[in-house]
């Protein structure tokens, strides 16, 4: 679905992407992993046709350089931060971008409802929080059900709780069969969304592996399931999030991704907050169907 062939992008004398080749078949999800400046965003911008580059990129068989409009019609894009006119209405924005995709949205509210923005259609974009803006960007990216989703460090501007919620939403909406290419340096996003991880180092592909192996290699693969009474569950979530844990609620308690050497840390936080834990279980990420980390690991 996405074919990147010997792509090089230079800014003056600096080489941001250096002879990168990557083939992403339909339905695959690939994370571009790397520190800031590794070339993740530059490569994504090349895929979107925002930069001129040497080499060739095809999306759905369309050359991005020559038939960029056709290629982008297959892509739903969520940027790091949403670039909108602040005065634009939320529902108005949905209708505007739908028109650019040749779609007519009968009810913007139903589109917004899918990303948890029901009732916000009448607001101006500037009235939305950072997390809400990202949800709006996601709603727009999903217009027309595009087969490719391109995400560029979509949770970089969100707090820990916001990140967890947004990644959960992405995981739910991205669905099976969609091709996903995303840049990230957050392990929870990688383990939740990606099947494959491509490590970029100074613009070059350093390594390629599946996300499980990648997470194992970072030593970050444990999840605590805490059973907590409903009356104190929300308070517990707030305390854990405030302490840097990407915790989230499930049916009977909380799921808390933890680093291997920090499994006791959530207990300490909740004990200090005088919140009782009825039971706990240490589970694998796969069983929880979710990520397993609190730390923003860097490669």
């Amino acid at each position: 679905m996405i074919r990147i062939d010997s792509v090089t992008k230079r800014f003056g004398r600096a080489t941001a992407v250096d002879n990168v080749s990557l083939d992403i078949p339909a339905g695959d999800s690939v994370a571009l992993w790397g520190v800031n400046g590794a070339g993740k965003t530059t490569l994504i911008r090349c895929v979107l046709g925002l930069y001129r580059f040497s080499g060739r990129i095809e999306v759905g068989g369309h050359d991005v350089g020559r038939r960029g409009k056709r290629a982008r019609a297959l892509i739903g894009y969520v940027p790091q931060e949403l670039g909108f006119h602040d005065e634009l209405g939320v529902a108005e924005a949905v209708r505007y971008f739908a028109l650019l995709r040749g779609l007519r949205v009968r009810s913007a509210e139903s589109v917004l409802d899918d990303v948890g923005l029901a009732g916000h259609g009448g607001k101006r974009v500037r009235e939305l929080s950072g997390g809400m803006k990202q949800r709006l960007a996601l709603a727009i990216a999903m217009l027309g059900n595009p087969p490719v989703l391109v995400l560029d460090e979509v949770t970089a501007s969100l707090d820990a709780c916001g990140r967890g919620e947004f990644v959960g939403l992405l995981s739910r909406l991205s669905g099976a069969g969609r091709t996903i290419l995303f840049a990230s340096h957050r392990i929870e996003e990688v383990t939740t969304l990606a099947r494959r991880v491509v490590v970029l180092e100074a613009g070059r592909i350093g390594a390629q592996t599946d996300s499980e192996t990648f997470a194992e290699s970072l030593g970050l693969h444990s999840m605590l399931h805490l059973t907590i009474r409903e009356s104190t569950r929300r308070l517990a979530l707030e305390h854990l999030c405030a302490s840097g844990f990407a915790a989230r609620m499930n049916g009977v308690g909380l799921l808390v991704p933890v680093a291997r050497e920090q499994k006791a840390a959530p207990f300490r936080v909740l004990a200090e907050a005088r919140i009782a834990i009825d039971d706990f279980e240490l589970i694998a990420a796969d069983a929880a169907g979710a990520p397993a980390h609190t730390q923003e690991a860097q490669p």
Partner: peptide, 19 residues
């Protein structure tokens, strides 16, 4: 949701025709 249901069905990977 309706959106999730729509994504669950097979995606049309034929080139979409932009306006």
């Amino acid at each position: 949701t309706a959106h999730a249901a729509s994504t669950a069905r097979a995606l049309d990977t034929r080139p979409a025709r932009p306006p």
